[in-house]
């Protein structure tokens, strides 16, 4: 009951937050954002044609009317049609978001799980060669740009210059085999890059927990190290870990991964978002901005609830 009340209260307080975020993002990305008019004009135009296009796109309407329309669209989740492809925005997103999720999730999950494991090992062997090796590996991962990692893995595993084991481009989820064939290389590139950042962050969190008084006390009581790690260190480290993981989810869902999608020819939401930004496709932009704001509000709510689950001292009041 307490949790339900908390959720309702948080959802209500999320409304002003949502309004604020949508207002600022609308102002920056839509009202002052890219102007689609000049993309839609031909190679030569007259002033009348410019006005006609602006009228068709609704650019000649007052700001308040356009923002009001946006809120209505957000409430009904009906953002109209893409200015470029004419496809309904809802259809566009429902087609591309699952693909991006299927593409990014394995890398996201593995990148975090492996990072936690490596961080635990590094923290346990703090200051030893194992710790230095893992941290050195992390720095390498952090230092190599995502783009280089993508090209490197593509050449190494997919191209005729390398092992030629996986497809360079495409996407097919008709069978698990096909899915694994297309998702493996993007996942390896994602994991390789994310491991560096994640491992360093998680190690720092875990090391901090390891130096707490209660951990020293537990050791003094002779509690087995594995149990101390799980119950006294890992569980207490979960709050920053949860925060990092949960707040990454909206970006994973909406932004997808532009570079991965572009290089591997995967029709996900990242490419759609990028194209919308560069061409000024405002219906798509509005949907992406609005959904990201909603997801962040929900992520915040979920984070608070999970805090309570991992740490009973946290109150939901």
């Amino acid at each position: 009951m307490e949790t339900l009340q908390y959720i309702l209260r948080k959802l209500l307080t999320g409304i002003p937050l949502l309004l604020g975020v949508t207002f600022i993002s609308f102002l920056l990305m839509v009202y002052f954002g890219p102007d689609k008019t000049y993309e839609l004009l031909g190679k030569s135009a007259t002033p009348e044609q410019i006005e006609e296009v602006r009228h068709q796109l609704g650019y000649d309407r007052p700001f308040i009317a356009r923002y009001g329309q946006y809120l209505k669209e957000l409430a009904t989740m009906d953002f109209g049609h893409s200015d470029s492809t004419g496809e309904p925005v809802s259809g566009l997103l429902s087609r591309t978001i699952p693909i991006s999720l299927a593409l990014i999730t394995p890398g996201f999950v593995l990148g975090n799980l492996i990072a936690v494991l490596l961080a635990l090992v590094a923290a346990y062997h703090r200051s030893s060669w194992v710790d230095r090796f893992i941290m050195g590996f992390s720095v390498v991962g952090m230092s190599i740009s995502f783009l280089i990692a993508i090209i490197g893995f593509q050449i190494l595993l997919s191209s005729s210059y390398g092992l030629n084991m996986f497809p360079v481009r495409g996407w097919n989820m008709s069978t698990v085999g096909n899915y694994l064939s297309y998702v493996t290389v993007p996942t390896l590139a994602t994991v390789f890059v994310s491991l560096g950042y994640n491992t360093r962050f998680y190690r720092a969190v875990i090391v901090e927990e390891m130096t707490r008084d209660h951990v020293r006390t537990a050791r003094a009581f002779g509690i087995p190290p594995a149990r101390i790690f799980y119950k006294n260190i890992l569980k207490n480290s979960m709050i920053p870990i949860i925060t990092r993981v949960i707040f990454s989810i909206p970006l994973v869902v909406i932004s997808g991964s532009l570079l991965i999608e572009s290089y591997f020819g995967i029709p996900g939401v990242g490419k759609v978002t990028f194209d919308a930004i560069t061409t000024g496709d405002q219906p798509v932009l509005k949907a992406v901005v609005g959904l990201t704001a909603v997801l962040f509000v929900l992520a915040q709510l979920l984070t608070d609830i999970l805090y309570r689950a991992v740490d009973p001292r946290v109150t939901l009041k």
């Binding site: 699952p98 693909i99 999720l101 299927a102 999730t105 996407w171 097919n172």
Partner: peptide
């Protein structure tokens, strides 16, 4: 399980461009 769920959720044929099929 994650792989299976995703495959089921996104299911159906992939983009009809995969010449392998």
């Amino acid at each position: 399980v994650v792989v299976a769920l995703q495959t089921a959720a996104c299911g159906g044929d992939g983009p009809a461009g995969s010449s392998e099929s």
